[in-house]
C-alpha cells in the first residue's frame, strides 16, 4: 500500500509540474540554468569515464580474442556493441543518477527544509512547475550527453588498441561491421526514458522529503538507490520489448 501511494503521488507530481505554468520569461531562464547544471557540467565526467571504460572494454575483448584465427576487427565490433547497447545509455545513466540525481534531490530537499517551497506556494506559484518542469525539459538534452559518451568510449577503445599494436584499420572496420541502425534507435529510446526517470525520481524524493538537514542526505541516497533500480528494471522491460 505504501509503495502504491508513492507511485500515485509520483505520477501526480509529474502531471502537476505541467500545470499553472510560470511566465515563459522566467521558465526560459530556469531551463537554460538547468541545461548548464545538469547537461553541460556533466559532459567532462561523462567524457572521462567513457574514454577509459571504452579503452577497458576493448582491452578485455582483445584479451579474450587471443586466437590468431579470430579477426582483430571483432574487437571494434564488440566495443561498439557494448558501448551503444548497454554502456552508454544504461550504465552512464546509473552514474548520472549519482551525479545529477543527488544534485536534484539535495537542491529541492534543501528548499523544502528551509521553507523556500512553502514560500513559493504562499506566493501562489506552482512549485512543481517552477522546480521540476525545467529539469524535465533540460534532461531532454540528455541524449546529447549519451551521444558524446558513445563516441568518446569508441575512441577510447581505438586509442587503447593503437597503443596495444592492433592495426587501426582492423578496429575501424570492426566498428563498421554489421551495423544495425535499429540498435541506435533502441539506445535512444532507452536514453529518453532514462532522462525522464533522472529528472523526476530525484525531484520526487527531494520535493516530498520531511525533516531537517540530515534527512536531505538520506533522501539523496534513497533517490540514488531508487533511480538506479528503476533504470535497471526499465532497461530490462525495454530490452524485452524492443530486442527479444
Amino acid at each position: 500500500m505504501f509503495y502504491l501511494s508513492d507511485i500515485g503521488k509520483y505520477f501526480i507530481m509529474i502531471k502537476m509540474s505541467f500545470f499553472k505554468p510560470s511566465k515563459w520569461k522566467v521558465l526560459r531562464k530556469l531551463i537554460f540554468k538547468e541545461i548548464n547544471d545538469l547537461i553541460i557540467e556533466s559532459i567532462p565526467i561523462v567524457a572521462i569515464l567513457s574514454f577509459f571504460i571504452g579503452a577497458v572494454i576493448s582491452i578485455q575483448t582483445a584479451l579474450n580474442l587471443s586466437s590468431p584465427f579470430i579477426s582483430k576487427s571483432l574487437i571494434g565490433f564488440a566495443t561498439r556493441q557494448s558501448v551503444i547497447l548497454e554502456f552508454a545509455p544504461t550504465f552512464m545513466s546509473i552514474i548520472m543518477a549519482g551525479k545529477v540525481g543527488s544534485y536534484i534531490t539535495s537542491s529541492i530537499g534543501t528548499m523544502r527544509v528551509t521553507e523556500q517551497i512553502d514560500a513559493l506556494e504562499v506566493m501562489g506559484i506552482n512549485p512543481l512547475n517552477y522546480l521540476v518542469f525545467p529539469k524535465i525539459v533540460a534532461l531532454l538534452f540528455y541524449p546529447f550527453v549519451i551521444t558524446i559518451s558513445m563516441f568518446v568510449a569508441i575512441f577510447g577503445g581505438f586509442l587503447a588498441m593503437t597503443f596495444a599494436g592492433v592495426p587501426s584499420e582492423a578496429y575501424i572496420s570492426g566498428i563498421q561491421m554489421e551495423f544495425e541502425p535499429y540498435h541506435i534507435v533502441y539506445a535512444y529510446i532507452k536514453t529518453f526514458l532514462f532522462a525522464i526517470i533522472l529528472a523526476t525520481v530525484p525531484s520526487y524524493h527531494g520535493f516530498y522529503m520531511k525533516g531537517g538537514a540530515l534527512e536531505v542526505g538520506k533522501a539523496s541516497t534513497l533517490s540514488f538507490v531508487w533511480t538506479s533500480i528503476i533504470i535497471i528494471v526499465v532497461n530490462f522491460i525495454i530490452t524485452q520489448l524492443l530486442l527479444s
Binding site: Q116, D118, V122
Partner: peptide, 14 residues
C-alpha cells in the same frame, strides 16, 4: 494568495 505576504521562521530566502 497573491494578496498575502509571509515572513517565515527561517526567512525562507532563495
Amino acid at each position: 494568495r497573491r494578496e498575502m505576504g509571509m515572513v517565515f521562521q527561517g526567512s525562507a530566502l532563495f
